[in-house]
């Protein structure tokens, strides 16, 4: 009986007790249960990503600042480095491969190279972001997607100054531009989404196969040779027609998912694909290529995000 009274007592107590002062954050309930290889709940996940977006952007700018890229010489080096590389490839393509065109050819090369370096940087930085962010991952709970996102911003911040320099080159050589140049904005977005998708994929894969980080630079370099970065599609077609190159090489150019993106980019900046690197050609990109590029970007993002997000709860254990 005694227990009964005490219980009713506690019941009354429980009822009469004023409720706890409202603590708004107490509404946040986190439940952690065994993981499966499945996507987390997308709503809360992306809300969390959104609420931490400043972290991703700030970490990107801080990384560059930490490497003194905010100073004049830092910025200068950001531009000089791809320029020197472009010079190397210019010598390679014009002297060794005999692709003529002088300064216009150089500007055409810069167009493709700068764009390709941007994609390459996104993928390479992202692939190191998870294995390199170990301390953060094992000590903090946050959507891991932010780490490749942050390195993507880093790559973007490194890309913008080179675009300015490119603009100067472009204007001195072409001395004109059409409104078609505004196409660079959607193409840039498509390219960023595409590269980020691949970055997510490689970020997760590198965790399972650590030697991927050594392998990846080679894969990316070979990829550069078989997409229309150094050699335009028409140039390669000409070589194939003249039986100087095997026929199957064309398939790479046609089926490379990056091809439509870089082709549109080249078209907008240096003219029609059929008359590469020469003025007087059409600067309007082909709609088919834009759509194909956008399609590839969405597919890359979906695959990359699915692979990354369905495994990210395991990252802390794998590190």
């Amino acid at each position: 009986m005694a227990t009964a009274t005490s219980e009713t007592g506690s019941e009354q107590e429980a009822r009469t007790r004023t409720p706890e002062p409202p603590r708004p954050a107490a509404e946040q309930v986190h439940v952690f249960e065994p993981y499966r290889y499945a996507l987390p709940k997308l709503g809360p996940y992306f809300r969390d990503v959104w609420s931490r977006r400043q972290f991703a952007t700030h970490m990107a700018s801080s990384t560059l600042k930490g490497q003194h890229f905010d100073s004049f010489f830092g910025q200068f080096w950001l531009v000089l480095n791809p320029m020197l590389l472009a010079l190397v490839y210019f010598l390679l393509t014009s002297v060794l491969a005999g692709q003529g065109g002088g300064m216009k050819h150089f500007v055409g090369l810069l167009t493709g190279l700068f764009a390709f370096f941007y994609t390459r940087n996104i993928i390479q930085f992202a692939s190191q972001s998870i294995t390199g962010g170990g301390k953060m991952i094992i000590n903090m709970s946050f959507p891991k997607m932010l780490l490749p996102l942050s390195t993507t911003f880093t790559a973007m911040l490194m890309y913008f100054p080179t675009l300015l320099v490119y603009g100067v080159f472009y204007l001195t050589v072409h001395r004109t531009f059409t409104w078609n140049i505004l196409w660079v904005i959607p193409i840039f977005l498509i390219q960023t989404v595409f590269s980020y998708g691949l970055g997510l994929l490689f970020a997760a894969v590198t965790l399972y196969f650590r030697d991927m980080s050594t392998l990846l630079p080679y894969v990316l370099r070979i990829w550069m040779y078989i997409s229309p970065v150094l050699f335009s599609l028409s140039y390669v077609k000409g070589k194939v027609d003249a039986n100087l190159l095997p026929h199957w090489i064309l398939y790479f150019y046609q089926w490379d998912p990056f091809s439509p993106i870089i082709n549109s980019w080249n078209t907008v900046l240096v003219g029609d694909g059929s008359k590469p690197f020469s003025s007087g050609a059409s600067y309007a990109p082909q709609m088919v290529e834009i759509l194909a590029g956008a399609g590839c970007a969405v597919v890359a993002l979906l695959i990359g995000a699915w692979y990354f997000m369905s495994r990210e709860r395991e990252f802390a254990v794998r590190l």
């Binding site: 954050a25 107490a26 309930v29 986190h30 952690f32 249960e33 065994p34």
Partner: peptide, 8 residues
């Protein structure tokens, strides 16, 4: 098992 955490 299961972990439930309420709050920030």
């Amino acid at each position: 098992g299961r972990v439930e955490v309420r709050g920030r």
